[in-house]
């Protein structure tokens, strides 16, 4: 760390205080202040969309269009939220998104864990194809998957159906979870499994008793990320769902952007609700998101 290199000089300076070190300390303090000011400014800019939407979602319909528009209303009100839940089935949409997202993410984690373990641990023909295939599939233009899928779904009654949208969500959660769980198992030392086999454990027992307990944090991270992906989906929800009772939050929000006019208060309130879930997850899992995310993806 360059911090250690730099701090070597002040450590000596404590013994022999001088004008020069005092000047250096002052310069260091000015630099720190400058650095933190810059970081605060960046934070303000980066978070400005969130700050503005949260502030304005608590405005009355009158103050929303006041000139100049305040960042935070002087008299906050829940009117926009009230209108959103009174005039649209948004509560139902939230429930739909939660149910579909949790089921899909659970399926994705199960399939991904099994597939990832097989790819990382077992040697069989075609495993390279599965590994590369999952990556290629993940990077595919979603349009080329979604449009044919829509035609198939419309023939078997899976259009405007939450089951259908759940199946469609598997097209991006499965390749993600397979890729991520493979990377995870590759980080777990192979010797652990080997020791279990040498002690006479079957492969199933090894998976059940050794690999799965170790994989639990990886599976949790995979579940949470998959859920965030389904929660934020726009393309599949908007294409496959056409009525308020089946809408997920993505389709629900989209329906508020009418062609004639936009009910901005309700739209902003809905946006805040959609934002609360992933930002809440980020806040709770902050350690994993700032470290594990990168190490998992880089290795």
């Amino acid at each position: 760390m360059s911090a250690q290199v730099l701090s070597a000089a002040p450590a000596v300076a404590v013994v022999l205080p001088s004008k020069r070190t005092a000047a250096r300390a002052r310069r260091d303090m000015v630099r720190s202040a400058g650095y933190y000011t810059l970081c605060m400014l960046v934070t303000l800019v980066v978070l400005s969309p969130v700050i503005l939407v949260v502030g304005s979602s608590f405005k009355s319909s009158h103050s929303l269009f006041a000139v100049p528009p305040a960042v935070f209303p002087s008299s906050p009100t829940l009117a926009s939220y009230q209108a959103l839940f009174d005039t649209t089935p948004f509560l139902r949409n939230i429930v739909n998104s939660l149910v579909v997202g949790i089921v899909v993410s659970a399926v994705a984690v199960l399939v991904g864990t099994a597939g990832g373990y097989a790819i990382a641990r077992e040697k069989f023909r075609g495993r390279a194809i599965i590994r590369i295939g999952s990556l290629v599939w993940y990077m595919f233009p979603p349009m080329l998957i979604m449009i044919p899928l829509y035609l198939e779904f419309s023939q078997v009654g899976l259009v405007n159906n939450d089951l259908g949208v759940g199946v469609a969500f598997l097209t991006f959660t499965i390749p993600f979870s397979v890729w991520m769980m493979t990377a995870f198992f590759q980080q777990v030392p192979y010797e652990l499994d080997e020791a279990a086999w040498l002690d006479g454990a079957s492969k199933w027992a090894t998976l059940w008793r050794i690999a799965l307990p170790i994989a639990r944090p990886g599976m949790a991270a995979c579940f949470v990320t998959a859920f965030m992906m389904t929660w934020g989906d726009y393309l599949y929800s908007v294409t496959l769902l056409s009525s308020g009772s089946t809408y997920t939050v993505g389709a629900g929000l989209n329906s508020l952007i009418g062609t004639v006019g936009i009910a901005y208060g309700q739209l902003l309130a809905g946006t805040v609700i959609v934002l609360v879930v992933p930002i809440g997850i980020l806040a709770v899992g902050r350690k994993w998101f700032t470290r594990g995310l990168v190490s998992g993806a880089l290795k």
Partner: peptide
């Protein structure tokens, strides 16, 4: 700061689109 600066990554794309549409 690292945590605060990855907030936009956690935001669904549609929310950023809607916010800028309004802005």
């Amino acid at each position: 700061f690292q945590l605060l600066w990855i907030v936009p990554w956690a935001m669904p794309q549609m929310t950023l689109a809607i916010i800028f549409l309004w802005l």
